[in-house]
Design a binder for these strands. Structure first.
Lengths: 196, 196
DNA sequence: CGCCACCCATGACAAAGGTCACTTGCCAAA
DNA sequence: TTTGGCAAGTGACCTTTGTCATGGGTGGCG
């Protein structure tokens, strides 16, 4: 039996997937968390699953943030669950050490199969054959977050103690890294990625 | 036994919730669809559930679109499943005839309870005590859709054979109806509502 | 009929957004 | 120690966006 921990902010989804996994008879759900924070708490309390399934898109701490923390403190393989497949997410996830990225519209058998393979040490996100994606610097990350909330440049400048011109430079860089033309498209893209 | 049809684009979520409902012993899941289109097809093929559970946020046909179609052709009560509670969704849903709006982070018992009550004829969305929300005209709806894709005013004008100035007027009206200041916030809001 | 909601449009104006070139300071790797 | 990347900033310049006033046209409804 593979011991799995599941994290998803939507309770009914969390319980639903957990029940499905239990039914597979190959997997035991030993932990359920409804936020990145709750997931980390349970790990801090001593829970040691074989694999962690992590939803990317959650209010508060995002999947990526949680992944960073988990990688920094534990040696437990993490698989992302998300709505959209995306080169950017694969890249970011792989760099941070995630072992897989699975779509939520997947069949149960495929999910179980992927979990088994990762539990056995496999890495389903092979960095080698990923296309190169420029990743964000920490500052850009902050800017991106504010952008994804619909903030204006002026507001972002005030909130982060920068000059408005500087903010424009950052957003401008972000756009080219995201492959978009303006902030509207950037927001759509960021939401699509489930990053913020 | 209450005969329920479930619609959600994410297969693992669809199967998960279905399994949970089945386990409740009070509900029988007689139909599963992974899109609004698929839901309507099954109804057209003669399926007649007692209640339809509909995810609002789906690629392609949205929950609201599906609801419109269902109301136009059948007399089956519809309950929305969504991530965010929101006055706007309640208002729109209620006007189109939905009987309930439930958050996905809800306990199973509450979900079962709500389904039972709606199956028994209850309306959990009482129009009377809803705050008045201005709703979009058909044209505004088209504009909103394009807006939510990150289109510029010029593009929208070209795509819909309007003058750029006209588009600005529509977007401007939209912003005030949505209670936002600019297109960035509008996109955030529309995504939040799961409308596009 | 008159009223209203919706549709479409224009022009003017101010504010916000986006690009570019160029500068400075820091820190880390070669 | 030189080189290079990153953070941070400035100013110029142009485009896009948003608001407002104002004008028509249509079609339904009391």
């Amino acid at each position: 039996m593979i011991r799995v921990m599941l994290t998803d902010d939507q309770n009914i989804v969390l319980q639903g997937i957990a029940t499905l996994l239990e039914l597979s008879e190959q997997i035991e759900v030993v932990g359920r968390a409804d936020s990145g924070e709750a997931c980390l708490e349970q790990l801090a309390a001593g829970l040691r699953p074989d694999v962690i399934l992590l939803d990317i898109h959650m209010p508060g701490m995002k999947g990526m943030d949680a992944l960073r923390e988990i990688q920094a403190n534990y040696r437990i393989p993490v698989i992302f669950l998300t709505t959209f497949d995306d080169a950017y997410l694969r890249q970011q996830g792989a760099e941070l050490g995630a072992k897989g990225l699975l779509l939520k519209n997947i069949a149960l058998e495929e999910l179980v199969d992927a979990i088994s393979r990762v539990a056995a040490g496999a890495n389903l996100l092979n960095t080698a054959d990923l296309p190169h994606t420029e990743h964000m610097t920490p500052r850009e990350n902050l800017i991106a977050r504010a952008l994804a909330e619909g903030r204006t440049n002026k507001e972002i400048a005030r909130l982060q103690n920068l000059s408005p011109g500087t903010v424009k430079n950052y957003t401008s860089n972000l756009f080219s890294k995201l492959g978009v033309r303006n902030r509207a498209e950037a927001i759509v893209r960021l939401k699509e990625l489930g990053l913020f």
